[in-house]
Design a protein around this nucleic acid. Structure first.
Lengths: 213, 213
DNA sequence: GCACTAGTAGTCAAGTTTGATTACCCTGAA
DNA sequence: TTCAGGGTAATCAAACTTGACTACTAGTGC
């Protein structure tokens, strides 16, 4: 699973009602085109697919404002909210070595309770440790690691990544336990979408992030 | 780009001539189904596609041995070898945050000269550092990092990952510079495929005699 | 001699991703 | 005036990925 569904559901949800281009803009504002597969085609596809599956409700809008192509606005349904929360919880917990998935989940974690996020992240640490144990047990040859030749570097790379991931997650847990950020039910939420007429706050005399790389 | 093309080209190349199921077995032996998208469908698709593009040569074989489905054997062409080396160099160098791509390249790095690998890895470190610089410069708000709220954790995660990646790469460079592993033109290559009638070397404790390649 | 399991080899439909392209409007300069 | 460039909004074909499925054989136990 890629991160696209969570991203799109999250964007639509924060807007209340949004058409594809707005979602696309939000994701770009979040830099998602850099760290995930959030390209136009994928976004529009996800919107249509999820509408077909009842996670989103599609409203056909007459080509009013500009005469451009007919556009469709989407609202999240109850089933969609359920799916959103399921994905969110899953992506915070599961260690599948895909950084984009965790990144997307980080962006939305404040939609859950602080306590729940802490539990999910602790579960994540456990999952990483278990993964590590399985891999090192299985791939350690009996005659010592030289047996593997340069292939051992693959193991080494994965284990190092896993350890870093666990360590970083522990740091995040501490920051959250220490009171950082505003979670669900704790007051004014942090809002990360562009309102319809908002200027991009980063756009004051700087270049765009996407150009860099 | 995923790692599948490099993996398939590499497997066919090491065999000299292989049909889909052999490639599939090699990739499983390498554990590739765990850390990449090396599933049957993808493998057979890649074989057909690359044959169509002239990177592989397809030989139709009569359903001889077992009466099963008609099978096709593939050989790598000159263009295929070129593509293989290009991908290999690129995947060792480029920092695109996709671990499967680097992993696949690590498995084949010994097909290049030691000196070239060192250069590519040093370029990799430079690329990571540049990426890091771009990201931190762009996404640091003028009013301090609190401005970002929990979104700052995304930044933090990516930068931590990049730093770990750079650090690990530096370690690898040192090991290689220190004489580890056997690279192209340095004697008997390490062979990581299963010969047709080979037992799994992990079962016997020895690696098998050198297949020509 | 019959069902069961495991292994060999590959196909297929459905879903997803990519990169290019379309179509429209508005603005500012030549 | 007219036309290039840029923003708005979305589509499309081609390629890729996924997971389930087919078809056939060789043992294995009872």
């Amino acid at each position: 699973m890629s991160a696209i569904r969570l991203l799109v559901l999250g964007a639509v949800r924060q807007h209340g009602r949004a058409h594809g281009y707005q979602v696309r803009n939000d994701l770009e504002y979040w830099g998602a085109h850099e760290w995930s597969n959030a390209k136009p085609g994928s976004i529009y596809h996800a919107l249509k697919q999820m509408a077909k599956q009842g996670l989103l409700l599609a409203h056909e809008i007459a080509p009013s404002t500009a005469g451009g192509p007919p556009r469709t606005e989407y609202e999240i349904t109850e089933a969609g909210t359920g799916e959103y929360l399921t994905l969110l919880r899953h992506y915070l917990t599961a260690y599948d070595q895909k950084p984009d998935v965790l990144t997307a989940a980080l962006g939305f974690m404040v939609d859950l309770d602080r306590e729940e996020v802490l539990e999910l992240l602790e579960e994540r640490v456990r999952a990483i440790e278990e993964w590590r144990k399985g891999v090192t047990e299985y791939y350690t040859p009996e005659e010592g690691p030289e047996q593997l030749g340069h292939i051992g570097e693959i193991m080494n790379f994965w284990v190092t990544s896993a350890d870093t991931g666990a360590q970083w997650t522990r740091g995040l847990i501490e920051r959250i336990r220490g009171g950082a950020y505003v979670f669900s039910g704790e007051g004014d939420p942090f809002v990360g979408v562009l309102a319809d007429d908002d200027e991009n706050p980063y756009a004051t005399g700087k270049s765009h992030p996407g150009d860099a790389h």
